[in-house]
Amino acid sequence: MLVPVLFGITILSFLLLQVMPGDPVEHAMGTRASAEELAAMRRLWGLDLPLWQQYLIFLRDCLTGSFGVSLFYKLPVSRLVMERLPITLALALYSTLIGLAIALPFAVVAALRRGRLADVLIRQLFVLLIAMPPFWLCFVLILEGSLRLGLFPTGGVGTGFLQNLHRLFLPALVVGLSTASLIQQSLRATLIETMKADYVDTARAKGLSPAQVFGRHILRNSLISTISVIGVRVSWIIGGTVVVEKIFAVPGLGSLLIDAIQSRDFPVIRGLTVCFAVLVVLVNLLTDIAYSLADPRARMK
């Protein structure tokens, strides 16, 4: 499964760059370079070779693990990625935990009071949250949390776990709020669905207390669906949080990709695309594993 997907990704990312307007050579040399200088640069970067040769070189770089050398950083793409990957993963994990912590109590209250005022208010609140543009939310949080109250830095990353927990809080909160509204909506719906299940009647007929019925039979079974929501969300967060990364100056994979696209740094774009594909496949795999651990029916015989 993994191998054909990745192979397809290498072809796609390679071909897409060929149709992308703009030329890294022109970008690097500026408009005043002569035709000879441009041609020399093109030869240096191997861009004068026939397409199939360029592709094979790219494939070789993928297989050796370097993913080529960045045109502008003059560093192997793999090194650039490895520098930023931990930050992106930390942001993904941190924001997901925040999202889960926010969504869980609201989903439970909304499901228990479905159709009532509390449910309606909570749903409106989360629709509002997901409708709010992240960049606006970022600015509000910076203005209030950083500049006015001085609780958090305006951006950047620090060193050490505790320092980053503090520094990454605002960006993680922005990403986590949309995660929260996704989880809240799906969990509320699943909870309501599960409450109607026959085995919940069985649990009540056993004489269990309402709290036991809810915690052990309704909530636990409903949380399994949240696993897949989180899986999808995490694969999106890896590389999908460009705006937040840019505003908070978080050097993650998303901002690396945008920089690379702006400067037409072909090897970096290609390398990142393949890297994202690997990560998405890995996250899916982890989701499946978590799913099978949580749901005995999904376990392989």
Binding site: Y199, T202, A203, G207, I224, D295
Partner: peptide
């Protein structure tokens, strides 16, 4: 009944047991 002296068997044995 708090002492469980009245118990029920449900119709559908496929959905009345918690699958997990």
């Amino acid at each position: 009944d708090p002492a469980g002296r009245i118990q029920m068997v449900f119709q559908d044995p496929y959905s009345s047991l918690n699958p997990r």
